[in-house]
Design a protein around this nucleic acid. Structure first.
Lengths: 214, 214
DNA sequence: CCTACCGATCGGTAGG
DNA sequence: CCTACCGATCGGTAGG
């Protein structure tokens, strides 16, 4: 008996290739013909599964955001203490993107291409757990561990931008410099910036004056 | 006598509209027909001026980077003292993008679409003055004003990513939050993060514990 | 899941 | 700076 592919096999292959190609060349820069060829099928077959190119885009995006929505809250809940929670939260976000830079690129592209739609999707998928973080910051401020000058919402957005930006387009940006930092140096410095600009100075809290946390 | 347009008039109108459309919809998402219509000419006329769509892209990008190359060094040279130099440098970069968010969007898109080309262009146009900044940071570290834990190159890249990201796609990202911060709050927080994570804590240095510098 | 076909739009050229 | 035209590719459909 021949190895009959389970029903969702072709479908998930299409999604995988579409994610990769949309991330690398953009939605407008990718033809469904190219996606179909990469998945080893013909164009009408792709249309049969997703209805249209627009339908394919929606499912690619849905898959990306659902991963975030379902997995991150679990990670955040796991960490207990103050600095541990900070560290594991930032670690979770960075790992999510670093394990698959396509996610960061796709997200950057969609924010540029369809800001209004992403506004809505962000509100649905991300607000629940971003609230956890801003609440955590305000509690830390009340308890004297966290700097009073911080704007919690703006702080979070800013750190996320730095994280997404450096992973999505890191390869290029590093060459504004004569001596481009490695990806590890880059992420270690992001950790340091995030930590130092969040907590009040307690020099030997953890990691001494360096931010080598990864 | 009719108002005869000076020779470069049509050309610069094309460049202006191309910048706007490429920034909003991307290079692949914009047809030269759309650019030509926005500039009030026909498609073959655009080709006559720029040779090809690719030629148009190159000139749009060259115009963007030359502005940076020519103007920013002047601004950086103007500021003298330590904190003033820091402040005016960051101010110059943020103003450059905030005055024309299309620049941030276009730069983000090009970094995603053509990382290798941008690597080369960055090396040519930006390295001279990024070196000024990393040298400044190392001097500050030697003099004890600036934190020793900093990785100067990685720090600079990270702050630039936060700045470009928040201006290019700020409208969308803010809605990951229940109470989205305004653009001014966002930029003020970026200033605070950049300052606090750079200088050693001297509480009343300038701006007290807040980063309201804009 | 495929072959065969559709109109529309793409970037670019000829020629003036 | 324009009109008229080119082949190629686009997303999508008919029909099986």
């Amino acid at each position: 008996m021949s190895a009959a592919p389970e029903p969702s096999d072709v479908r998930s292959r299409i999604l995988t290739e579409a994610t990769r190609l949309f991330a690398a060349r953009g939605y407008e820069g990718t033809s469904i013909q190219q996606v179909a060829a990469a998945a080893g099928i013909t164009r009408p077959t792709l249309i049969y599964h997703f209805g249209s190119k627009e339908g394919l885009r929606r499912e690619v995006l849905e898959q990306l955001l659902s991963h975030w929505r379902d997995d991150l809250p679990r990670v955040l809940a796991a960490a207990q203490t103050g600095t541990d929670r900070f560290r594991s939260a930032l670690d979770a976000v960075l790992s999510f993107f670093r394990d698959a830079p396509d996610r960061a690129r796709l997200l950057s592209r969609e924010m540029l291409d369809r800001p209004e739609e992403m506004t809505t999707l962000f509100a649905e998928h991300l607000q629940p757990w971003t609230s956890l973080i801003t609440d955590y910051i305000r509690r830390g401020q009340a308890e004297g561990r966290i700097r009073l000058g911080i704007d919690p919402e703006a702080y979070l957005v800013q750190i996320l931008h730095a994280a997404i930006g450096v992973i999505a387009t890191g390869g290029a940006t590093q060459h504004i410099l004569r001596d481009p930092p490695s990806a590890e140096r880059q992420l270690a410095e992001l950790f340091r910036i995030a930590k130092v600009s969040l907590f009040k100075d307690r020099p030997h809290d953890f990691g001494a004056s360096d931010g080598q946390l990864l």
